[in-house]
Design a protein around this nucleic acid. Sequence first.
DNA 1: CTGAAAGCGCTTACAG
DNA 2: CTGAAAGCGCTTACAG
Lengths: 349, 349
Amino acid sequence: MNKEIGIKEIAELAGVSIGTVDRVIHGRPGVSEKTAALIHTVIKKTGYKKNNAASRLKLARSKTIRIAVILPFESKVQDNYWNLPFSGIHRAVEELKDYGITYTLLTFKMSEEKTFLEQTRFLFENNYDALITVPYFYSHCQELLKKAAERKMKVVFIDTFQEFGEPHYAIHQDSLKSGAVAARLLNGVVGDQGNYLVVNIMNNVYTPQNNLEKREAGFRSFFDTRAVANSNIHNVASTAKNLIKVRHKLIQILEMSEKVGIFVTNSRAYLLPEILKEIDTNRVTIIGYDLNEKNKTLLEEEKIHFLLNQQPEWQGYNAAKGIFKVLTEGDSSALELEIPIEIFVKENL
Amino acid sequence: MNKEIGIKEIAELAGVSIGTVDRVIHGRPGVSEKTAALIHTVIKKTGYKKNNAASRLKLARSKTIRIAVILPFESKVQDNYWNLPFSGIHRAVEELKDYGITYTLLTFKMSEEKTFLEQTRFLFENNYDALITVPYFYSHCQELLKKAAERKMKVVFIDTFQEFGEPHYAIHQDSLKSGAVAARLLNGVVGDQGNYLVVNIMNNVYTPQNNLEKREAGFRSFFDTRAVANSNIHNVASTAKNLIKVRHKLIQILEMSEKVGIFVTNSRAYLLPEILKEIDTNRVTIIGYDLNEKNKTLLEEEKIHFLLNQQPEWQGYNAAKGIFKVLTEGDSSALELEIPIEIFVKENL
DNA sequence: CTGAAAGCGCTTACAG
DNA sequence: CTGAAAGCGCTTACAG
């Protein structure tokens, strides 16, 4: 369909040269208003869409799209969560590489704010076309967005949602909903008579708390419409290194009802089974986040019962593909995404 | 990286013209063995990959890739399951259209085998490059695959798995696993003391039973390792129009234990809540397949508790993208996919 | 403000 | 068996 309509046909119909049509398509200056209007009319009438493959063929060399990726890589551990969004980005760029697109990975440490700042400096010095990163350091990100807006650099935040006054794109999961999903799954097993424990395991480095608070809020909101007393939902915060508090709380709760559901609000559900060792685990159901190796193994062993996933690979893939789309076609729909909440049990891992 | 390596550089390094390099890349005849070997060596050494965007630019017109899509559309009902794979195919083709790729939708009726046969005839008369369809009519499909192989037409089956002697591609879900997932989810709620009912609701037209049997087998296999007696797992088959048998069976089972889990092996879980009307539904948990409107509404209303999804849109999308990839790059990895089993509850719908 | 021409990387007749 | 040249649809200096 419409296979005959290219820039040549538009030029012919409008009685101008293809160079002029090209200028109008890209809104480049140097075309009289009258000519531009005429060409626009012809384009609308014919439904012409520029051939991106041809367009990028010429531009691939001279105007390569350069994406900077700033992600927190603490160490080079094998099982690093950030490898997942990173590999998604890699896959997308690989798919589009004939169109002229590259990326550069810049890493920072969550425990050292200044490493993030240094990378943003590098970003602006090298004037990338777009940035994929995480909105962790609020004020730095705010400043970053201001500078980016000036230079028309596209910024896409992944992983966590954060409000900003400045324009940007965000690919993230609805934390409230995911908390509610966790509640639904635990409630099915534990029942309305059971007790529930929300476990917030802190990192010793900075973590965006906002996100975890919303997960807990979503979890609690689910029970608002249930016959579960508010007093049956407990919570405990602790560091990864000192889990005694969690253990004490748990023992205490296990005396209050036959069944207990544990909701770990971050990726560290794998720390829980260890604590349960000397406790009758048949009474406890655990749900957590993220398919890291430790969590997966424990799900396999039925020591964790459910895992929620944020599809990190998919986030990276869509961020990179979306950047290409907005930069080449002006279509930003792929960058305003809410990620579906994936539920995993042993059998669909 | 490697931005300097194109067909021109290969030609230069091998001391031949780009035309000859092109012939070698595509395995076209008319190149001496010696020259071909030399060029292959150079390609390997440099890691050259042909630029698909450029390649297809020339071919888009003369060698448009034509995909035939043969799917069962009984009627033009709004909420038609087959719209989902179809829209996935549409989206993929839309994404790739600059490369010269089109599709034609050919429909058949599951209740009339000959309509399928007619479409396959049309398929071969028009000599499509590839076919996306469903492996429902076994012997017709077998014949189809033979003819397709002769003409080097690629065939991709979606939706259901079926063994064939002839080569083909298949995108499908592991039915055994999905049955086990259903069992896991029901067992969590219903417990080891409960009773389970597997409901097979027949269509009055042909349906591939193989698939449903595997789902039931997977469901049962889950309980092999549990403290659930085999005698606690019942099953009942019925047509959609006459569900009295299911109702009777259910009432009978509800007398045997406090809680009952129902596994509907196809997309018709929505028929169950109707039956439960005059029964105490708090004792019954229902799991079924597919996010059709009726199922979604009932999940929303908490009358169905879990739905498993086969990501039909995603199947279509990957089938079309995969065809393009295998035809342009010879990479068929995207066509040998196992679809992840998605779990839905009310909150992540 | 506009057009004619060269070129992006690859493919294809055509000529030898 | 091989090469030189034209062309895919678009973009870009360059000339006017």
